[in-house]
């Protein structure tokens, strides 16, 4: 089925009219005691609806990349969590094909365990057995450059090292869709370069990329299309050059207003 099906239908990510909100209660009751006390007092707990995404639609073809830009709190990370299946959207549908891997800081790691255990744990969460991960072990450790720290608990790692390990595992698993949430920014310059080269190589091999970044040059160099999200709404979606220019203009106009 595989090769032909992919040629016939090269869409690997299909997000259609997705909306997401969280109902946040005015007071957060975490215990049974609080609930009972407040019920007896007759206090009503109203919830406030926080809209995170509103009617977001896009598609990614096999081997293509989509950049996601926007200010902090715009809803980018939530979007990635919805595409990866962590959250179920309140409206709309998400369809993905093949193995989807979400790469964010500290994803799938136990900070108390050491690197060896975490490689197996992370692999198992992605559906790989211990034997399968053993074969990949050396190349993961080599790519992450952590040979000397294998027996160290992850809580003693720097954030750059953790991101390197996460990246190395995700790369070795050859996902069909890679969701990258701002992880490259914590690595040093050399590692960033290595990662970017690797991502490009994976794109050639047919991996699709959903790329959240605040680095406009990186988005420009990777992504054919870009989606710009601001305050939970899609501001622009299309050709990267056009969308990035619109975004930068918007940023300048905001900065201008603030100065005045």
């Amino acid at each position: 089925m595989d090769e032909n099906a992919k040629k016939v239908n090269p869409i690997v990510v299909d997000v259609s009219h997705v909306s997401m909100y969280f109902d946040v209660p005015q007071y957060r009751y975490d215990t049974l005691k609080e609930r009972v006390v407040n019920f007896l007092k007759g206090k009503r707990n109203r919830t406030r609806r926080i809209q995170v995404l509103e009617d977001v639609s896009f598609q990614i073809n096999r081997g293509e990349s989509l950049g996601v830009i926007g200010h902090n709190g715009a809803g980018k990370s939530t979007l990635l969590k919805i595409v990866s299946g962590i959250y179920a959207p309140k409206a709309g549908t998400v369809k993905t094909r093949g193995k989807v891997v979400l790469l964010n800081l500290g994803a799938g790691f136990d900070m108390e365990a050491d690197a060896v255990e975490n490689i197996y744990l992370n692999g198992a969460i992605l559906g790989f057995s211990r034997a399968q991960m053993k074969k990949r072990f050396d190349s993961i450790v080599e790519f992450a450059e952590i040979e000397d720290f294998l027996k160290l608990p992850l809580k003693n790692y720097s954030s750059g090292m953790i991101s390197r390990l996460g990246f190395a595992i995700a790369m070795d698993i050859h996902p069909d869709v890679l969701l990258v949430d701002e992880v490259l920014s914590v690595g040093d310059a050399n590692f960033q370069k290595k990662c970017l080269e690797r991502i490009r190589q994976m794109q050639d091999e047919g991996t699709s990329l959903l790329f959240v970044s605040h680095s406009i040059p990186q988005v420009r160099s990777f992504c054919k299309n870009t989606i710009w999200i601001e305050n939970s709404k899609v501001m622009a979606y299309g050709d990267t050059e056009t969308v990035c220019n619109q975004y930068l203009e918007y940023c300048e106009s905001i900065a201008g207003k603030k100065k005045k």
Binding site: D110, E112, A113, E117, Y120, L121, G123, A124, I125, G127, F128, S129, R130
Partner: peptide
């Protein structure tokens, strides 16, 4: 069946730690 590897690894890690 799908999650068997994850269950195994997490249990193993628990016993070890």
């Amino acid at each position: 069946y799908r999650d068997r590897n994850a269950i195994y690894e997490i249990a193993r890690k628990d016993v070890k730690t």
